[in-house]
């Protein structure tokens, strides 16, 4: 097409093409893409460098032998040695198992308890918003703060937990010192902190379900329990999935609570997890490359949770 036009119009088309290009450039320059670029471009640059630059750099470091107080890692010699070491390290196996137990127990109990609390409060009760505020209060506190509270709660002699179970003739137990109890104690404290959060997520989900459905179920003579189980809870799928993802990611990266509770990089064996192992290898032992490889393994585990979730959200058009 162009060549035949060229033949007919001759010299005029050169100008025409330049003008065309100019017009296109002008249109591009005025397009929403370019005009809005500073708005999203600057945050994207900063966040992109920090998040994606950081991830790539971390993977690169994990392929070196970087350790100790060296100035710079040596990128000349890359191999998978650190991953081989990590996969055969018994500390990694132990912490991976603890991570898994913590993830499953913490996520499932927090979800169930949060759902229970949401159903409890999803009705006409007095001082509802005050109750809700109290249930959610732990979520406004730092893990450093709540770790202090729970350390005191679990105190052998004067802690509230042993005092309360003492009323039933049980205990006292050494919640922190006993390796087979400490993981459960940590999980219980985390459930205390997070079930208010899952409650809020479920309450938002419940409020979007119309009252007609309760009415219809009541007319059909269904009990309250049956109404929730058959009609309401199935509709909370997307709330449950979002809350579960947030809880699972939290369980994978939990560090602050454990560090603050035990005051050291090394929590007791029973509750040592991948996330604490990673930070310890890096900032206590200066094994940078090795800890970077553990961090990459953690990232891969989080990806297993996030990727399907984001794909699901994307397909639903919910992002």
């Amino acid at each position: 097409m162009e060549s035949s036009q060229d033949a007919v119009a001759g010299a005029g088309t050169g100008e025409h093409a330049v003008e065309d290009r100019r017009a296109r450039l002008r249109r591009f320059w005025k397009s929403d893409f370019v005009r809005s670029a500073p708005y999203w471009g600057i945050p994207l640059l900063l966040m992109g460098l920090a998040v994606y630059g950081g991830i790539i750099w971390n993977i690169l470091i994990s392929l070196t032998d970087y350790q100790g107080f060296l100035e710079r890692p040596d990128y000349g010699n890359l191999d998978l040695e650190m991953y081989r070491q990590a996969l055969s390290d018994s500390a990694v196996h132990l912490t991976a198992r603890n991570t898994f137990v913590l993830l499953v127990a913490f996520t499932s109990v927090s979800l169930v308890l949060g759902l229970f609390l949401a159903v409890l409060l999803d009705r006409d009760i007095r001082e509802k918003s005050k109750v809700q505020t109290i249930y959610l209060l732990p979520m406004a506190l730092s893990f450093v703060v709540t770790a202090q509270f729970w350390l005191w709660m679990y105190n052998y002699n004067d802690g509230l937990v042993n005092t309360v179970i003492g009323l039933f003739g049980l205990g006292p137990y050494n919640w922190i010192g006993n390796p087979s109890l400490v993981l459960g104690a940590v999980i219980f404290a985390l459930i205390w902190q997070f079930s208010g959060y899952t409650m809020v997520v479920f309450l938002a989900g419940l409020q979007s379900i119309s009252n007609d459905q309760f009415e219809a179920a009541r007319v059909d003579g269904a009990s309250i329990f049956k109404t929730y189980w058959r009609v309401i809870i199935p509709q909370l799928k997307s709330s449950s999935v979002s809350a579960a993802v947030v809880l699972m990611i939290f369980a994978l990266k939990i560090f602050t609570f454990l560090y603050a509770m035990f005051g050291t990089y090394r929590p007791p064996k029973g509750t040592d997890v991948l996330a604490t192992l990673m930070v310890r290898e890096a900032f206590q032992l200066q094994k940078w490359a090795y800890s970077a490889s553990i961090a990459t393994i953690l990232l891969a585990m989080s990806l297993l949770v996030i990727a399907p979730y984001l794909y699901y959200q994307y397909r639903e058009g919910a992002l």
């Binding site: 630059g53 990611i249 990232l299």
Partner: peptide
Amino acid sequence: VDWRRQMLVVLLFVFGIFIPYQAILVP
């Protein structure tokens, strides 16, 4: 502001919410 393929950038941002900070701590 509407422009083509902006969802890709949105995904980049949203993904950033979920990464465990351990994965960028050494860098």
